[in-house]
Design a binder for these strands. Sequence first.
RNA 1: CGGGAUGUAGCGCAGCUUGGUCAGCGCGCCUGCUUUGGGAGCAGGAGGCCGGCGGUUCAAAUCCGCCCAUCCCGACCA
Length: 575
Amino acid sequence: MRFSKLFIPTLKEEPAEAEIISHKLLFRAGMVRKVASGVYSFLPLGFKVLKKIERIIREEMDAIGAQEILMPALQPSEIWVESGRWSEYGPEMWRVKDRNDRDFCLGPTHEELVTSLVMGEVRSYRQLPQTFYQIQMKFRDEIRPRFGLMRAREFLMKDAYSFNADLEDLERSYTDMDRAYTRIFQRCGFNFRSVEAASGLIGGKVSREFMILAESGEDTVFYCDSCDYAASADVATTRLIEPPKEAARPTIKVSTPGKKSVTEVSAFLGVPQEKLVKTLVYRFEDSIAAVLMRGGREVNESKLSAILGTTRFHLLGEGEFREVDLVPGYVGPVGLREGVRLIADDEVALLTNFVVGANEEDAHLKDVNIGVDFQVEEWGDLKLAEEGEPCPQCAGGKLLSAKSIEAGHIFQLGTRYSEAMGASFVAENGERKPYIMGCYGIGVSRMVAAAIEQYHDDAGILWPVSIAPFEIEIVPLKWDDGAIRKTAEELYEGLLAKGIEALLDDRSESPGKKFADADLIGIPVQIIIGPRSIVSGNAEIKVRSTAERSEAPIADAVDESVRILKNLFRAIAGE
RNA sequence: CGGGAUGUAGCGCAGCUUGGUCAGCGCGCCUGCUUUGGGAGCAGGAGGCCGGCGGUUCAAAUCCGCCCAUCCCGACCA
């Protein structure tokens, strides 16, 4: 492709709006333009990257036998009412009406649609398993779109759905996907980690996220420094250290005037934080839940959400305590009023003779014990993991954390949708059974931004070869010079003949402008032809990512640059 | 939703406090000449309902009100 024939509106100055580096560079390199908050157009260069990523995804999906289809973005409300998500999904769902006032939405995801498609067609276990995928725009009216393509309201997603006859079959589809995803992220050149994840609203139990490591990431992952344990912050846990057991002492009430927080009470009573149990009160729907947590620990609200079965809950505000007849700062499990759902973090089970709120103003209870002073019906892991804590999987390992960008997520869904929608098949024994489903997503447009977050320098983008918009760029420094032009044209033809995706900067711009643009758009290999080259007979080859420069006789420049390019591909493949 | 900020030429900004030759600068764009190894120089030029609506005033980019858009922060850890 010739630069002059491509619309690449590069900018010298960065847009005031952009906050993170990928957003700035996508804009400056002329790859995207904003249409509205969280809504973007892809320009030719940006679209090429998108297509390169899509191609890798298609190859890996096809390789595991997933079949590409295309479902509509526009979906009728009926199927969402059937699954129960028309009301569950909330304002994030983009709802629209047709001229006859019928409700539709712009699909935020496609479980309902694909289930309704399959249930009409796939009737027998003989037709299973089936896995479908599509690459399509998704619509989510995010609370706060931000960071350009990173959190957009309209974005490109690859979503896949497997329909399986039983759990073992689902396991196979899921494992295939897991491997395909790993290959996709490897081939795109990402530094990523696959981690245990929470399932959230979508349902199901087993799920893994594919996290691209980047400082600007909105998510946190924890991983072990000595084994392969890795989990998103939503589900990460830690090995509990059991404190020495003490014989239960009789409870005594102590006066703690004005001392409410764990640190205050701990200091005031001279009791270590680890011997305090705090009682956090949440309101959800029309109920109240109290969470018992060891002092010094934080509640992981994702874990709580999974237990409560809703994301709509909040910690009680100062004013709300009176309404529900509780004493702020002094709530405790002993003598807790009726009607409060008590959930304890499993670490609390290890404690003896601890301190809790007394459910009255300015007082705490000391030497409290479970089973003696109160009972707990509901236990769970509700802790927020922290860096440096012991690994839950191996002995001696420590948890490290990193910021990351969620780029892929795979779920074993089970029958959440098939049951709700009455989608079933006839099994081998003649019984009707709901499909066992899995769903598998990749944020394709987000990957474009994530790649830049991971690969850039002060001058611009450093595309991994596999997803770069072009593979080799020829930079003739003086286009109006006949010898330079002729040389550049010959190199260009030579590269094209070898099937290389080559970009020829055939503009009559100054050398400075051409260098700057080439570095900005980040094509992995540059061949520079200037007056010097004509004198010396050597072309200069520069690797964008490492800034390594080498010289090659012009006659060999095609072969040499292709050799360098192949090496870059091999580096990504880990060879 | 709550809080903060911004909106002036395609992009980046100044001007607003102290209403009145304040419609300005840089980049980009157009024309011509000269240039060409890290965003060239000179000369000339085009381009703006100063986010929208309403108000105050003899007079509004500037003061007031409402609205819209965009960006940032936050979701209360007893």
